[in-house]
Computed example of a mutant assay.
Amino acid sequence: MRIWQQPLRGPQAWTRADLAASDAWQPELTAADRREIAAALAHATAAQVPMLHWRQADFPLRELGGRLAAISDQVRDGLGITLLRGLDIADYTDEQVCMIYWGLGLYLGEPLGQNPKGDLLGHVFDQGREYGQLDVRGYETSAYLPYHTDSANMVGLMCLRQGLSGGRSSFVSAVSIYNAILAEHPEYLELLYRGFYYIRREEALTGNGVSNTPLPVFGVRDGVLSCRYIRNQINAGAVKRGIPLTDVERAALDFFDAQTQREDLRVDFMLQPGEMAFCNNLTMLHSRTGFVDGTERHQRRHMLRLWLRFSAPWPVTEDFGEQRNFELLGRTVVSLET
């Protein structure tokens, strides 16, 4: 196991000040873009091809498609984050918004399944489940979600509706966290490279329910970092195995968590209806504050989520391996009836 001992450079090692210095990471759709999206939606609706079987030609974006490909490249090799604004969804139905988001996503990467059902277009809303239970995933609740990664190359979130309050999104660079650990506690890196056992939420109440081997937090290949981190699943994995984390393991994870809370490293924003955030899931972590819903449908927070694979392979190390996902388990979409 080779541990990278030099600071990591490049645009992915950003800080809050770096993002504040330029709004280039916040592109806005133009009137021409919106007209092209509306025409693509009309084309797809008339063709009646099932949405989850679309290819780019089924949602034609001759001009905007090139810009979306450039955004994908920026997410992969640049800062690793994009906030795409300018889509007015007020005159679209929920179903049409889903179609638009799915169509845009086809120009950014290859969709991946997000759960054992194989859902390719995820719906993030409070399903009344209790956060912290072994078999509950955070997106099914209204709770605060600590900084974490998902099982994809790129993660996209689109706001369909906001709740009454809360639900603020936050992102932090895993590369900047790595540099902070190297500078202040390099002795923790070996533990983070070796990794930890994770609970498997969908199997937590049956069978073993724990990863077969430790999953590394960090891996570096050719000077490119990959990060995988879900603290709650690490904690639950230790409980499930009956082998508590050691004092030094907890200290390493606590220091990692402390870096995610630094205001000088993270960026926070509230997604407005129609806005879309895309991030490089291998170089960034994301979080969400808790939220409160109202009793009316328009007062209930609802986000659409995409997990995407980059068109060009990411340079993961052999020890880091592939992120676990569910892309082979079907092509389905959950109901909008919430």
Rank of each mutant, 00 (worst) to 15 (best):
H298P: 10
L225T: 09
P11V: 06
V224S: 02
T317V: 04
T141G: 03
A238Q: 10
Q114L: 03
D222L: 13
M303G: 04
R331T: 10
E130H: 05
L104R: 09
M154Q: 13
G138H: 05
L192G: 00
S169Y: 04
Q26C: 08
R62Y: 06
L160Y: 05
M276S: 07
D94Y: 08
F255P: 02
T283C: 15
D119F: 15
V136H: 03
D264T: 11
D73F: 14
V333A: 15
L29P: 12
P111A: 12
V220D: 03
G219I: 07
N232Q: 15
R288N: 11
L271E: 05
L253R: 09
A17C: 11
R301G: 01
N232Y: 15
D135K: 06
A20Q: 10
E296G: 05
L225C: 06
P186C: 07
E140T: 13
E249W: 13
Q272M: 14
R34P: 03
I177A: 06
V292T: 12
R297C: 12
V334Y: 11
Q162Y: 02
Q26D: 00
M303Q: 11
I89P: 01
P186V: 09
N212L: 13
L108N: 01
H185F: 08
A46N: 09
Q261Y: 12
N280L: 07
L191I: 06
H123R: 15
T45G: 09
T260E: 00
F291L: 00
Q114W: 07
A13I: 00
C98Q: 13
R250C: 15
D119C: 13
G207P: 11
G10R: 07
L182G: 00
